[in-house]
Amino acid sequence: MTIDDATIERLVREAQAGDPWAFGQLFDAYHGPIHRYVASRIRNLPDVEDLTQAIFVKALEALPRYEARGVPFGGWLFRLARNTVIDHVRTTRRHGDLDEAVDHPSLDAAPDVAALRRLDYDRVAGALGALTAEQHEVIRLRFFAGLSAREAAIAMDKQEGTIRGLQFRALAALRRTLDQGDGDEGET
């Protein structure tokens, strides 16, 4: 998030008071993280864009009921996003894992660097597939969407300490899998 929490809360209040410009600023702040989170769970790009838009429409409708007391806006918005994605997955059964997610390869790197990165990413994607569902979700929220541990805790309806523990175990498991992969490659 490039905007600090106080500014977010001010924009939320202005949007609640009926200022479309403030809502536009909130969209700018959260569209990228929301899109990345949805894209990490849904395979089809048009579905990702539709769901992302649907999440913001829902946020617009639910905004008058949002109260800042103890709940950061990011956590509230991502809880809404998470529920929307879960509903979508339940109804369509067209969900995909990270290794099937949308792909926008970076074009600004030199071809050989890009190829190396691509190799890393493929290994990361494969390693993510070995995580538990909750560990995977924490990785999505913390590193793909860029949420704080507190926001991720609110989104997942868990304690902040639980999120930190899940993150720790997820990273350890990823590292183990990646190290194991390195070893296998070394042997071959």
Partner: peptide, 28 residues
């Protein structure tokens, strides 16, 4: 590595984002 992966693989298309934004502001 995870953040870079998200940035390159999962980030939105700026033109699509712009279109969604315009629709949402109108809706708002």
């Amino acid at each position: 590595l995870l953040s870079a992966y998200a940035e390159t693989h999962l980030s939105p298309d700026p033109r699509a984002a712009e279109a969604i934004r315009a629709r949402l502001i109108r809706e708002a």
